[in-house]
């Protein structure tokens, strides 16, 4: 099959660009640790309130781990528990969340915390809060009539 010389150049250029893009994503994910939230832990969605750590939603200081705090959220139509939380500036936090009913999202606007919450699964993401301010948490997956009212708040303070 004949291919025009200019088309060959164009496709080689295109392929090279794709390889650069993919290498960037791959190195960032598997070498620098910027993997997407992909926790494999499961939980009985009907017993969330009795299962650790979801029996105590909120911020907890932890010792001897790679992160300083665990921030536990429980989602249900149409609210998060806790509804507001204060995080110390510079803290490395593992956000751990799940849902008691339908699929929800947990997105902290203005940060890279953005994950799906699915019944039966635990979602986790570790990050450092290094900028002061108030961050709005919104549900970004349609969950019913009150979807747009479902929110929480993180305050990052010195």
């Amino acid at each position: 099959m004949h291919m025009h010389k200019l088309e060959k150049i164009w496709l080689i250029f295109g392929l090279a660009a794709l390889i650069v893009f993919l290498s960037t994503i791959g190195v960032s994910a598997f070498y620098l640790g910027n993997k997407p939230p992909s926790c494999l832990t499961t939980v009985d969605p009907e017993k969330v309130d009795q299962t650790a750590p979801f029996n105590k939603p909120g911020l907890h200081k932890v010792e001897g781990k790679d992160w300083d705090y665990e921030l536990v959220f429980v989602a249900q139509a149409f609210a998060y528990t806790p509804t507001q939380v204060t995080v110390p500036l510079g803290a490395k936090v593992k956000v751990i969340a799940t849902t008691k009913d339908v699929v929800h999202g947990l997105e902290v606007a203005g940060t890279n915390i953005n994950m799906m919450l699915e019944p039966g699964y635990v979602s986790e993401y570790t990050t450092t809060f290094d900028k002061e301010g108030e961050y709005l948490i919104v549900c970004n997956e349609y969950c019913g009539t009150g979807h747009h009212l479902m929110s929480s708040k993180i305050e990052v303070k010195k």
Partner: peptide
Amino acid sequence: QLTEPGIDPAWKFIQVILTFLVIIPSLM
């Protein structure tokens, strides 16, 4: 489904690679 729990990140990445391959026919 990149931000979903329950799927191994390595398999997510493999499908990301395949996704990028579908760009080639659009370049053509």
